Amino acid sequence: MQYTQLGRSGLKVSRLCLGTMNFGPQTEEADARSIMDSALESGINFFDTANVYGGAGHRGRTEEILGRWFATGGERRERTVLATKLYGTMTDRPNESRLSALSIRRALDASLKRLQTDYIDLYQFHHVDRLTPWDEIWQAIDVAVQQGKILYSGSSNFAGWHIAQAQEAAARRHSYGLVSEQSIYNLLTRNAELEVIPAAQHYGLGLIPWSPLQGGLLGGVLKKGHDGARRTEGRSLATLEKHREQIREFEDFAGELAREPGDIALAWLLHQAAVTAPIVGPRTREQLESALRALDLVLDAGALQRLDGIFPGYRTAPEDYAW
């Protein structure tokens, strides 16, 4: 396994992050435990979850699954860099969502209880809160750090200017601020290159891409569809139809390299300087094993140029759209 530091922090994490969103709604607990054990055995030490994961009828279930797994011993908690998130609505009561000081306190204590741990390594804001001042947010986070309940904080789904706003507010308070940004980023969705990635690099944030295969569309969806192995519907179907020719060309290129499309999509992310660790969300152990293959795939300059030709990216703003 390869490791790197998370942004400007001294925290070392694996180059792949295990996403747990499927644990509970789609993956039974016994299978989830098997996947987590396999991840640790392979050297993946970076696990990501959120307080809302678990399904509409059982929000928090995924954290509970992780907590019971930690409780089985074997130094599972000590071997894991644990990341969770808050912001989403947990109940219909006031102050059970967003980033007020009260919400942060309640959400953090509830996550700690579900996860059966006394601290969280990386506590992430699942979304920007446009109603709560940053001074209030950072005061609550500073208290949590002083209490030993969290070590680092990160953002998710922020715009570039939100990252700047958060970091400048933290600097005024002499707070440490964010160390990471979790953003959608893959060959097909590259908007983060405009402002999010430049902001993250400027402020020393590691980038944690979610949906690295764009919901499976970069995992060989056309070939699997022909084989009867995958059914695409809803928004994914609309995206597939819009980008069918690009995806077909991508899958053909993967065939030229004699590699699986998903391996190439993950490897491309690992070749991007800003990326710390893409989040892989396997539903089975086999899917986890397939993701690990990307770590050993080296894409030369010609291959990277070919991928940029199939899926054009962006230059840094404002040069992308101005002189």
Rank of each mutant, 00 (worst) to 15 (best):
P312L: 09
L269K: 01
I163P: 04
E233G: 06
Y176V: 12
Y123K: 07
L307F: 02
I310Y: 07
A110G: 14
P212T: 00
W210M: 04
A265T: 08
L257H: 04
T49I: 05
D320N: 13
P312F: 12
D320I: 01
G313L: 07
V275W: 05
L299K: 00
W268D: 02
P318G: 04
E136Q: 03
S211K: 03
R61F: 11
E181M: 05
A277V: 08
R8D: 12
H226L: 14
L217I: 01
W210K: 07
T89F: 01
L187F: 09
T20S: 14
G74M: 02
A317R: 02
R130G: 08
Q246K: 14
L297A: 05
A170N: 04
A32Y: 12
A56N: 06
E29N: 02
R173N: 05
Y176K: 12
Q147V: 03
I184K: 13
G206A: 06
L213F: 05
L269D: 02
F47V: 12
K85N: 11
T84P: 03
A258V: 00
A71H: 03
F311K: 09
R105C: 00
T284F: 08
L11C: 05
K224V: 05
T20A: 11
Q214N: 12
R61H: 15
E233I: 00
T27W: 09
V298D: 14
Y176E: 13
A192E: 10
S290K: 15
G215N: 02
K223C: 04
M36N: 08
G255D: 15
Q182S: 10
L288A: 03
A140P: 01
T189A: 13
A144P: 10
Y185H: 08
A164Y: 02
A254N: 07
L205T: 01
W134K: 02
S34A: 15
L40Q: 12
L115V: 06
Q165S: 15
Y152C: 00
G43E: 00
S236V: 00
V143F: 01
D227L: 15
I137V: 15
R15G: 00
D252G: 09
T72H: 03
D142F: 00
L297Y: 11
L151C: 11
Q305S: 15
S14E: 04
L222T: 05
D109I: 00
A273M: 00
G7W: 06
D308N: 15
G7I: 06
G19T: 05
V13T: 00
L66T: 02
A39F: 11
V143E: 14
R230Q: 13
E251Q: 12
A199V: 03
F47K: 07
K12V: 10
L288T: 03
K85A: 10
D37I: 01
S155Y: 08
G281S: 13
N95T: 07
